[in-house]
Amino acid sequence: MAEEKHHIISYQKLLGVLGILIVLTLLSVAITEIELSRWATIAALLIAGIKSTFVLLIFMHLRFDQRIFRVMVGLIIALVLVVIFITMLDFMFR
């Protein structure tokens, strides 16, 4: 079959990413337990963003897939963010 060779992700790499994800989870819990300001929420969301980037790139294989997949996912994430942003603008300034 004339398919290009499929990239195989090693177990070590997957377990390494899992370790990072667990540490980040505990970090976001710790931050919100200690610091009770709105910045803690922003930090927790930022950490969630970093975690999802790891999941998308490694677990969901985007880093090793054809570029079209990264472009598509990037556009959809941008679309979701723009929709959230515009809705919040409309809501706050109407």
Binding site: T25, T41, A48, F59, M60, H61
Partner: peptide
């Protein structure tokens, strides 16, 4: 199998945001 895995990662991805937004409100 990879597609099934993608679906499973999506479930994980959604929870990554649900967890801080509901459990970790400061």
């Amino acid at each position: 199998l990879e597609n099934g895995g993608l679906y499973w990662h999506l479930v994980d991805l959604i929870w990554i945001f649900l967890f801080p937004l509901f459990y970790l409100i400061a």
